[in-house]
Each structure stands twice: as C-alpha cells, then as structure tokens.
Amino acid sequence: MLYNTSPDTAFTPTTQIDPLGYGKVAIVTGCGSGIGLATAQLLLAHQFRVCGLDAREFDYNLLRVEDHGRFHFTQGDLTRPGACEEGVRVCVAAFGARVDVLVNVAGVMDGFASADSVTDEVWDRVLAVNLTVPVRMMRGVIPFMTGVAGGRDGVIVNVASTAGVSGAVAGVAYTASKHGLIGATKNVAWRFRNEGIRCNAVLPGAVESSIGKTIAGGLDEVGFEQVKPVHALQARPTDGAPIITAMEVAKTIVFLISDQARTINGVSLPVDKAWGVV
C-alpha cells in the first residue's frame, strides 16, 4: 500500500528508497558470473536499472524475482564489430537515453604464456576482450554521459587486475592487456574530468571467478611454473584457495560509483589484501 487511507496520518514507508541507484541506469559487461554477476546483483539491490551484457546465457534464477523488471540482458560477443555500440543502443532503447554507470568486467585469462611462446591467436583474443572491448564500451557510453543525457555525472569502473601493475602474476598477453586498461582508465579520467565523468579501475587479486576457468589457448606449463610462487602468496595457507570473493570486489566497485567517491578519479584501487605490495 503506497499511501495511508487517512489523510490525517503521516505515511511512513516500511522501506526507504535507496538514493544511490534510484532512477539511474548502469551497464555491466560479463554479468553472467563472478565479479560481473555480483556487481549486477548489488546494483539492482541499490535500485539501479541494469543492462547486462555477456557472451553466455544468463540465469535469471541468480536474481531476486523483484529485480527482474529492472534488469535487461543482451547476449553476444562484444569483440564482434559494432557489438559494443549495439549493446549501448539496446540499453538506451530499454531504459531511455541515459547511461549513468558503466562497469567493464568481461575478461579472459591467457594461458600464462611468455613472450617467446604466446601465439598470435591468444594475443589477439586476450587484447580484444580485455582492452579493446572496454575502450569501445567507454566510447559508446560517453555521449550519453556528457551530451544527450545532459551530463549526469557519469561513472566508469574498469576491472583490471594485479597483473595491471605487476609482471609476475600472469602471461604476457593478460599482463599487457591489464596494463593497457589502466592507461586507458587514466586517459579517460583526465580527458573527461570537466564533463562530469569519473573513470577508475579496481585491481582484484586472485578471486574465485569464472575468468580463471576461461583460459585462452590452454595452460602454458613453463610460464605457469614461474608465477606459482607469487600466486601462493595470495592463497589461503590451508587449502590454496583464493581469499577474495567476487562480492567483495563488487562492493568496492559500488563504493567508487557512490557519492562517497566523488573526488576519486583516475585511480587504480587494489582489492587484493596487500598482495600487490609484494
């Protein structure tokens, strides 16, 4: 019941409307699992309308039923020419000519291959998914954050990695792609700082996520042996499992989206329990 029947009684809602996402639209790539799914779930809980993009089918059972009406999913390969722009167009068609938030999560691991063994196929695939797609997505949403939408303080969060600042945790393709994504983040932050757009990156450590199961080109045993000692520093000493959850990363992303982070722009924020200081 929205209003009391008696005009003499003040109406007190049982739940307050969340001001963070009310009336706002967010796009999340890689929304089907891991950090992307956790981010979509958390944004919906904050009353955002969310457009999710993923190459695989989406399981709506992973969302609360009451959130289904504010979630629009599009399946497709974002590396395909025009696919990123199409994803933005679908979002605008679904929720109107505004995009307040973009979270670039979709990514693929390399097989830990080094510069002397990486194939052209793996290099092209990893750079396309991890760097080219985020840049194309940013290119697609910026007009709706600065022009058509009237400059509504847009926020972009790119999910990079500890591999974006270290050369000792992944193969050469993944490392290069995440270093590049941090550079793109800084460039967008500076270029559009006066247009009301903030652009930041998060740098997760080892997270239990589907990206670890999506390895381009298969595992390079020689390269992997070189990074194993570094990865052991991030895992739990008892069972070797990652100690960071996807939801913990998602909460950091939502913080960067919030007004509490209004003066934070162009940063690369580690979410790695001090792994990156090694």
Rank of each mutant, 00 (worst) to 15 (best):
R236L: 15
V202N: 03
V155S: 10
G223F: 10
V122P: 00
A83Y: 02
L78A: 00
G36W: 10
F255A: 03
V222G: 00
V254Y: 01
T245L: 13
R136N: 14
A246Q: 04
T39P: 05
G23T: 08
A201D: 09
N158W: 10
S114T: 13
E121G: 01
G82D: 06
V118W: 01
P237E: 14
L42K: 12
D18C: 12
D54L: 04
H46C: 08
V103R: 00
D220A: 06
C31Y: 02
A97W: 00
L233I: 08
A189L: 12
L43D: 00
N200V: 09
F48Y: 14
G150Q: 02
K251Q: 15
Q16L: 15
D259A: 10
T14H: 09
E225G: 12
H179T: 06
G150A: 08
A40D: 03
I17H: 04
F144N: 06
S209P: 07
E195A: 11
G76A: 05
A113S: 15
A97C: 05
R89A: 12
D54I: 04
V230M: 08
A250P: 07
P143A: 06
G171T: 08
N158M: 08
G36H: 07
S258H: 01
I215A: 04
T175F: 05
L131S: 09
R70L: 02
V230E: 05
D239F: 13
G164I: 03
N200Q: 06
D77P: 03
S33A: 15
V271E: 05
R139K: 14
A55C: 10
T252V: 13
R193S: 15
T185C: 08
F255G: 03
D120A: 10
V271L: 10
L42S: 07
E66D: 12
A201E: 09
I244Q: 05
Q41M: 09
K24D: 11
G240Y: 08
R152L: 12
V267Q: 12
E66C: 05
M138W: 03
G196H: 07
I257N: 07
I243Y: 03
A94D: 02
G266M: 11
I215T: 14
E85I: 01
A113P: 00
I17D: 04
F112K: 00
S268D: 12
A26S: 10
A55W: 04
E85V: 01
P270L: 09
N4V: 08
A10Q: 13
G23V: 10
V202R: 01
T162S: 05
G183E: 05
T245A: 14
T12R: 14
A168Y: 06
V25W: 00
A55D: 02
V148L: 07
G218H: 04
I244V: 15
A149N: 10
G218S: 03
G34F: 09
L62R: 13
R198L: 07
E57H: 09
G171H: 06
L43K: 00
G167M: 09
T175H: 03
A93D: 15
G164W: 00
A93C: 02
L181A: 10
H68F: 07
W123M: 12
R98T: 06
L269R: 04
A97V: 03
V254I: 07
R70A: 06
Q260F: 12
T214M: 13
K24A: 11
